[in-house]
Write a protein that binds this DNA or RNA. Structure first.
Lengths: 187, 187
DNA sequence: GTAATTTATTATCATATGTAAAGTGTTTTC
DNA sequence: GAAAACACTTTACATATGATAATAAATTAC
């Protein structure tokens, strides 16, 4: 659990009691490469922290597999639109490598908000940071070319090329694998 | 202020004392059509509630004016990436009509969090909802055609066509005005 | 109210990306 | 380790969108 608390401490401090409370509603999981951490159709009731490994959130649009986002070790994975609405998500979470994950029970966490104000504040800060990330992603999608987005991705996460199949990277960039191949062949 | 409190009540309840505290750090403004509520380059230190009128968040990319988002009466406008980082925003907020706005001082608001837990909780809820909106916007930009995005926009906000210049709508959709003209002429 | 400016449309041509199909290389399965 | 499945690249052609320019329509300024 230590990695998780190091991550959380980056957002705001937690009392020892709050840490114990979070530990109590969390459990460590090992997930095999290519298997689903959460399948499509389930309601998101868990906040996952990636200790080791890399994940993607994906869904199907007209039978085409679309990668909405990648998440790396040392970060959390959440399907916000399901977690905060309580509705089933049409998105799944798949691990792209054999992975170690800490699963935090979300309804348990939200209950802790009342008695542990530092926890509520901490997760408010985490979700505010996530909001910033999403705004920046929109900017990237709205007015950068596919080529620019690809360059930005490999700058941001150079090892993504080695760790995720190009077909997933392509749909993440909003293009087809064929088009990504073309972009890559220009270098 | 009543419209503001009706809006806030949709997210979670506020005590009378909390309402008074918010009113104290808020002020009503009248803004002329086409003028900036917040110019580019300023740090976002205010959360605006639109009583009447319509706003856009915009910025310049390579001298081209880009509309990042529209906001309508009965909703708030915030440049999250600046509000939560404290960094100057490269985005401005412009009113597209003569407008009535309630300006909530953000640092004043954040100070209220300590003594008014209902306020912290309320704004956590508001920002969580904003996070959902951004996730959905990403999905729209990532895997819908410009034509689909245009249809979705007029379904979502039919009067946007009458109230915002098409050039702004075009850049919001991630296309040029010429391309938007083409899309529109197909109907 | 007229002139000047801005906004929107249309046409033409260029470019980027999509689709489909074929071929090559890699991984998985038994 | 061979066969099958999958991933990636390349080519050819189709389509959508961009860039530019000309024109028309609407708005703004005086």
């Amino acid at each position: 659990m230590e990695e998780l608390f190091e991550y959380l401490a980056r957002y705001s401090p937690l009392s020892e009691g709050s840490k114990r409370a979070i530990a109590k509603i969390s459990q460590e999981l090992h997930i095999r490469k290519n298997s689903d951490l959460q399948p499509i159709g389930h309601t998101c009731k868990t906040i996952y922290f990636l200790k080791k490994g890399i994940a993607r959130i994906y869904y199907f649009k007209d039978d085409v597999d679309i990668t909405e986002s990648f998440s790396f070790e040392g970060h959390i994975v959440v399907r916000y639109e399901s977690l905060f609405t309580g509705k089933p998500s049409k998105k799944g979470i798949q691990m792209l490598e054999d992975s170690d994950v800490i699963a935090i029970n979300a309804s348990g966490l939200f209950k802790l908000y009342d008695r542990h104000r530092d926890i509520e504040r901490l997760f408010r800060n985490i979700f505010e940071a996530a909001l910033i990330d999403q705004v920046n992603r929109i900017e990237s999608l709205q007015f950068h070319t596919a080529d620019e987005r690809y360059k930005a991705l490999i700058k941001d996460a150079p090892d993504i090329i080695k760790r995720a199949p190009l077909k997933y990277i392509a749909s993440y960039l909003g293009i087809t694998p064929v088009s990504l191949s073309r972009i890559r062949s220009l270098r």
